[in-house]
Every structure is written in C-alpha cells, then in structure tokens.
C-alpha cells in the first residue's frame, strides 16, 4: 500500500478535519488537534512541503486548495477555541460566564424633540386626509405678506419682525406663504399641511428664537365652515395632548383670515391656566382673490401652530433655547 498522494490527502483532510474539530470539547483536545493539522509538522505543512512530488500542472491547484483549507481550518479553530474557553468555566484563570455584564451597544441615538413633535403633528393631519407640502424658506414680500393681505405700511407687519436678505428677499416669518404657492399651482378643493422652518428677528430667550418651526394647515372646498375648523382642531388637540385636554376658541385677528381665532388649551392638572397654542380662521376673501379663486364658490379655513410651543407643552420643556443648543444631555432624553 503506497502512501496517499498529496491530492488524496487533501481530499481526506477537507472532509474529515472540520468534523473532527466539532468533536473537540476541551482545551487539551483542541491542542492535540492543532498539532495534528495546523502545527509545524501537521498534515497541512506536510502537504505543502511535498508539493514538489506532484506533477507540475497540478501544483498551483494543490497549493491553492491547501492554502484555502489552512485558512478555513485556522479560522474555525479560533472560533472553536473561543467557545471552548468561554464555556469551560472551571478552567483556571478564565472568569465564569456572567450574563449580567453589559452588552455591546453603540450610542443610543435620538430624534430631535422638535422633529418628534413635528412628525406626530404631520401624522395626525395626514390621517385626517391632509397632504404634506413644503415651500421655500427664502420668500419674497409678495408671498410672505402681500398675497396674505398684509400690505406694506400695515400695522399687522408689527406682528412679524422680519429678517431681510441683502437682495431684498426675506426669510419667511410664517409657513402661510406655502398656502399661496399651492393655491397658485392647484385648483380647489384642497387639504394641505405645510410644516417647516420660520424666522423672526427675535433675540433668543426662554420663549423666543430667531429660528422656529410652524405647521400651517389649509382646507378649501365649497362648504368648509368654522364649525368644521373647530372640529378639526379639537380632534388634533385631543390626539396630540390627550382626550381630556380642554380647548377654548377666542376671537383674534390675522389679516389672512376672517373671522380669526386663537386656540388655548388647558390640561386638567394645569389648574385653570389657559395656554395659547395656535391661530386659525376662515380664509379671508382677499387671499382667495390674490390667487384667483372664485370667492363665490370656494371657502375654507386655515390654521398655523408653533412646533416649539407644542413640543414644550407636550414634553414639559421650560426653555426654548434648549432646542437649539443641541446638548446631548437634553437630546438623549427623547
């Protein structure tokens, strides 16, 4: 009986060696295995050193296979070694298995609370049938003011301390201009919400920021009424803050709605304090005229809310500046 050829030996190793490794259960057996196959005078070494004995056309193939096998076995061996050592608690020096050691976690990550609130607001309105649209943050006087019935030299402009660009355009002071863009582009009926960043020339303090967020809503059809607006906003508030939240609508003034309302809420535990959360009203006919809608056929309501305000009330945040300081100790609470 002749010695097996290197090729035959390789076949044998490929089929037997992995199985034999599986059977090893102790560090001693593993060491024997290592000597047998992977060691200095192990079987793989033997094959590689006898490569000169085989026909030259087979050499590259044998070499390749032998190397591949060696790598495969080495890797499996290391894995097995890990398993054997960590499962054999009795082994001297190895600590016993402790399931209470902390797991490997990467940093936890968090959505910004403003976006958390914003996504919830959008979700509530989308489920009521509104479509989300966005508009530019840099606007012209026309879209931000004129088309919304706020002519130049009107005291209503005092309600908007505006940041202007050097080229005469401005940073939108509210998300209402998105209404105008949508109505210019689309025929009624429509039901949209427009979330986004807004800007005012306000110094940052506990309740102001030059950058803030709003969500604007608009519903136009033949018979959308103030009563519908009331229902819509009541539903929103009950979904966002909980069904026990109380609402109060009171008369107010916005140049782009008539009649206008401000909405206050009261949490049961807040002890009677009414908190202003949003403005709303029936779309002023001037706004429809500016976009060419027939005011005899179409009417609608609009509302706008400050996301910071809503997020502060929902999460109990007492200082608006925290939103823009981005300290992880704040952000990671959400």
């Amino acid at each position: 009986m002749s010695l097996p050829s290197p090729l035959e030996l390789l076949d044998q190793l490929e089929s037997e060696a992995p199985a034999e490794l599986e059977d090893c259960t102790s560090p001693e057996e593993l060491e024997d295995y290592r000597v047998k196959y992977l060691g200095r005078s192990g079987m793989l070494r033997q094959i590689l050193s006898s490569i000169g004995e085989i026909p030259s056309e087979q050499r590259p193939q044998v070499g390749k296979r032998a190397n591949a096998l060696k790598q495969k076995l080495s890797k499996k061996f290391e894995q097995k070694q890990g398993k054997v050592s960590s499962s054999s608690g009795s082994e001297e020096g190895a600590p016993p298995f402790d399931p209470t050691l902390p797991g490997r976690v990467n940093s936890r990550g968090s959505k910004h609370p403003l976006n958390l609130a914003l996504e919830r607001i959008v979700e509530i309105f989308e489920r009521m049938g509104y479509t989300t649209v966005e508009g530019p943050e840099i606007e012209t006087d026309f879209y931000n003011f004129e088309a919304l019935n706020i002519p130049a030299d009107h005291p209503a402009r005092d309600m908007h301390d505006t940041l202007y660009l050097e080229d005469g355009r401005l940073l939108r002071t509210h998300t209402s201009p998105v209404q105008v863009h949508v109505m210019e582009a689309e025929k009624p009926p429509l039901q949209i919400i427009a979330p986004g960043r807004t800007f005012r020339r306000d110094a940052a303090d506990m309740s102001h920021s030059p950058v803030f967020h709003q969500v604007e809503g608009l519903w136009v059809d033949r018979q959308a009424t103030f009563a519908d607006l009331k229902g819509t906003l009541e539903l929103f508030v009950h979904r966002f803050f909980g069904p026990e939240t109380r609402l109060r609508f009171r008369p107010s003034y916005f140049p782009f709605t008539e009649p206008s309302a401000e909405v206050d809420i009261q949490f049961e535990e807040a002890g009677g304090e009414w908190l202003e959360i949003l403005g709303a009203g029936m779309v002023d006919p001037e706004v429809f005229k500016a976009v060419g809608y027939d005011t005899d056929r179409w009417q609608g309501f609009a509302f706008g809310m400050g996301v910071e305000r809503l997020a502060m009330l929902k999460y109990g945040i007492d200082n608006l500046q925290l939103f823009y300081e981005n300290d992880l100790r704040f952000l990671n609470q959400f």
Binding site: G129, T131, P189, W219, T225
Partner: peptide, 18 residues
C-alpha cells in the same frame, strides 16, 4: 361667543387624501 359654534368635521375628499 365662539363657544356657541358647534363642533363638526369637514367632508373628506378621498381623491385628495395623501
């Protein structure tokens, strides 16, 4: 008084829903 206004819901225009 705004509290006199009833609470109703607008008629949904399904074609227009998102």
């Amino acid at each position: 008084g705004y509290e006199q206004i009833p609470v109703t819901y607008p008629r949904l225009n399904s074609e227009r829903t998102p």
